[in-house]
């Protein structure tokens, strides 16, 4: 990387895009530090790090994985509502294999991921080759997917004991939870593929104008299909770590409404739902905002019945902060007040 790009990166950071989500996150951390001065403390114990920052990163892993896939799908002008259900399917597939058979961990993981890719393939085919609206196409799997997972589990919570599999959800590597490493890995690979090859450009082109990019020679259908395969993969991985975390597959509840959190994260990162320009780092920043908010609510000791209200208010505030029009109106009002 030469100095020119790093300079322009610093400039970009100050001028736009990153500054407002970052400001929101910092504000939230400051609020937490005021409530509890030791909020950001990390200590090392029993060979692993403990503390709220580690918890936030660890707990945000499923949504972070979903958000990586969701960012790309939204960039192509689509949306994937089925990711929560796909998490349930992948978890159920792995749990049943672990309980019923004696296959290797590798086979279990391959089967789990394959189930997610299959779901992605179905979504992608419905959207790009059948021309069905993404919100409807993926809604199908959102509803039936959870049913399929419940069917696999026979309506029960399937629990298993497998040290290797559990390690993926609650183990540590070099003192850091494995889930955080997994998110980093998926992030780096997807970022390299999308930013170091022309793939990212194709995705943005298809999202901006699907038919125009087709005339330019981009295979828009394949690009869209790839995007849904990616969300399927990410959702399966998220389902695997969620199941590994509790040593069981709870088809009724795992990943419930997480598709909405993933979409929210992408929006908090400043991406437009209409497609086009995207940024995975910004979406991950959105994920951190959501999870910090969740952790804040949990550790602050506020009554449970206020949870959703507080979350909604905070999200509206962050979105307003990001709105150019809102900021202009505020500074306009402030200017008027100063003049009068």
């Amino acid at each position: 990387m030469n100095t020119e790009t790093s300079h322009s990166f610093a400039e970009r950071l100050l001028k736009s895009r990153y500054i407002w989500p970052l400001a929101a996150l910092l504000l939230m951390l400051i609020f937490n530090l005021l409530l509890d001065a030791s909020f950001l403390d990390i200590h090392f114990d029993n060979g692993r790090f403990y503390g709220n920052p580690i918890d936030i990163l660890h707990r945000s892993a499923p949504v972070a994985l979903l958000a990586i896939g969701m960012t790309v799908v939204i960039a192509t002008g689509g949306i994937d509502l089925s990711v929560g259900a796909v998490m349930a399917i992948a978890g159920a597939v792995c749990a049943n294999l672990l309980v019923a058979t004696d296959v290797s961990l590798f086979t279990v993981l391959v089967a789990g991921i394959a189930s997610g890719l299959l779901c992605g393939l179905i979504n992608g085919a419905l959207v790009s080759y059948m021309g069905i609206q993404p919100i409807i196409a993926t809604l199908l799997l959102m509803v039936t997917g959870r049913g399929i997972a419940q069917l696999l589990n026979d309506g029960q919570i399937v629990t298993f004991q497998h040290a290797g599999f559990s390690w993926l959800g609650s183990g540590t590597l070099l003192g850091i939870p494995v889930t955080i490493w997994l998110v980093l890995l998926v992030f780096i690979i997807s970022q390299l593929m999308l930013r170091r090859t022309a793939l990212g450009l194709f995705v943005e082109a298809v999202g901006c104008n699907s038919s125009a990019s087709r005339y330019l020679g981009i295979n828009d259908r394949t690009v869209k299909l790839m995007a849904y395969l990616l969300t399927g993969f990410c959702a399966a991985l998220a389902g695997i770590i969620s199941a590994a975390d509790i040593n069981g597959s709870d088809a009724n509840n795992v990943g419930l409404w997480l598709e909405l959190d993933a979409i929210l994260a992408v929006v908090l990162g400043g991406a437009a739902l209409s497609g086009g320009r995207f940024s995975i780092p910004l979406s991950l920043l959105g994920v951190l905002i959501i999870q910090t908010l969740n952790t804040t609510i949990m550790v602050s000791g506020m009554p449970s019945k206020l949870n959703l209200l507080i979350k909604a208010l905070a999200v509206v505030l962050v979105l307003l902060l990001q709105s150019d029009i809102f900021r202009k109106q505020i500074s306009g009002l402030a200017g008027k007040w100063r003049h009068s």
């Binding site: 919570i157 509790i246 709870d250 509840n253 000791g301 009554p303």
Partner: peptide
Amino acid sequence: RSQTAEFTRNR
């Protein structure tokens, strides 16, 4: 301390 975990194992 009192907080909802929505009757589920993950939460």
